[in-house]
Nucleic acid binder design. Structure first.
Lengths: 144, 144
DNA sequence: TATTGTTATACTCTATAACTATA
DNA sequence: TATAGTTATAGAGTATAACAATA
């Protein structure tokens, strides 16, 4: 049964628990990929064949960094470069089968961690989390 | 009014929203301190006059890294070293007044970000978050 | 000898500046 | 000229290995 939280403490305690849960989640990644490479891989999965410039914008890193990251991912066989037929200056990258597998496995591992924790809760507590989920998503809305 | 979330998606969506909220929170730190230095500073505040070895253990970094981090924090006037009277091998660090101020300001800034977001919600939504908070804290229990 | 912390050195990640190739 | 991407180079941050001081 959840205890009542005093109003002024709500934001402070929420901040703490969000930080800690995210840190715990981040630690669930025994793959030898760095956080930035993992993030890039996920973006490449989502944004299909993406240009290096586009990837730099999405990841908020500089073009030289993207060059390096893509070179690393390519060397490991996780992404593939394709020439853009319309503009020969641009290079586009997509996931290879192996890359897609890595993304899927990472995601599964982190989700499984949370699923295990959720499974320890009372049914009523899970219901509370389920109810709070859309509200937490609302906290991310309308960015500035 | 929160929508109902299907059971198998709960962990996956929770993972996403936790990651994103934490990332947004982390970005709310215009101080010129790196994440690892900020984290060390908070630990030093919490664990009083702490030895370098203890700090290394808390932060899960190696002794040489701690030596460097403490040197940087000391150079910026945020921490102070004290000799341990009982064992002259060990060095203990504490926050200076300036260091305590930095910790407080960082914390305030991040909490304020969340408070602003919470203020945009309906009262009923805030109630849902308040109810979910202890449950989220429970997700962190019993670490392994 | 064991423990606490430091120095020497190297590797990863990321950035800025200067460059190449296309457009 | 402007744009997409690369190469050269430098600066954090962290690690392992070797060392110094003290217990």
């Amino acid at each position: 049964m959840p205890t009542q939280v005093a109003e002024p403490e709500l934001a402070a305690r929420l901040r703490l628990v969000l930080n800690r849960l995210a840190r715990r989640l981040r630690s669930q990644t025994p793959d030898d990929l760095s956080p930035s490479l993992t993030s890039a891989l996920v973006t490449i999965e989502l944004r299909g064949p993406i240009t290096l410039g586009g990837l730099a914008a999405c990841e908020r890193v500089t073009p030289p960094s993207v060059t390096r990251m893509v070179a690393t991912l390519e060397r490991r066989g996780l992404v593939r470069r394709e020439a853009d037929p319309a503009d020969r200056r641009v290079a586009r990258v997509t996931l290879t089968t192996a890359g897609a597998r890595v993304v899927r496995r990472t995601r599964t591992r982190k989700t499984a961690f949370l699923a295990r924790r959720l499974a320890r809760l009372e049914a009523s507590e899970v219901a509370v989390v389920r109810q709070a989920l859309p509200v937490l998503e609302r906290l991310l809305e309308d960015d500035r």
